[in-house]
C-alpha cells in the first residue's frame, strides 16, 4: 500500500487514487500527418523504467484532480513534482 501525496488533500491511501500512466506523453499536433507506425508508437508505447518514473494520478475519492508525481518503481518512494507547480497548472 502506498501513501500518495495529493497536492490538494495531502497524503492519502493508494485506494483513493486512479492510475494514469506515464506523464508528458505528447499527442501529435496533426494526427492526420503522422504515419501508422508513429501513431501506434504514441498510442501504445510507454517507458518502463527500473527507477524514477514520472506518472499521472487522479485523486478519485477526494478532490478528483489529476496531478503528476515522480515514483521510484523499485522502492515506491514518491516525490511530488511540486505542489506549487501543480497548483499553477491546475487552477
Amino acid at each position: 500500500m502506498m501513501l500518495i501525496p495529493c497536492p490538494w488533500c495531502g497524503p492519502r491511501n493508494e485506494v483513493e487514487f486512479h492510475y494514469g500512466g506515464q506523464a508528458d506523453v505528447a499527442c501529435p499536433r496533426d494526427p492526420d500527418a503522422v504515419s501508422d507506425a508513429e501513431w501506434a508508437r504514441f498510442l501504445f508505447f510507454r517507458a518502463n523504467p527500473m527507477g524514477a518514473f514520472t506518472e499521472r494520478w487522479m485523486h478519485r475519492a477526494g478532490c478528483r484532480r489529476w496531478f503528476t508525481v515522480r515514483r521510484d518503481t523499485v522502492t515506491h518512494e514518491i516525490r511530488p513534482v511540486g505542489a506549487e507547480q501543480e497548483r499553477a497548472v491546475t487552477v
Binding site: 490538494w8 488533500c9 478532490c63 478528483r64 484532480r65 497548483r87 491546475t90 487552477v91
Partner: peptide, 21 residues
C-alpha cells in the same frame, strides 16, 4: 483558500472540496 478548510457564517457553511470547487 484550500481544500479541506471550512468557512462558517450564521447562515451557511462553505466546504472547500477542490482548488476551484
Amino acid at each position: 483558500g484550500r481544500p479541506g478548510q471550512v468557512a462558517r457564517t450564521d447562515r451557511v457553511l462553505v466546504l472547500g472540496l477542490g482548488p476551484d470547487e
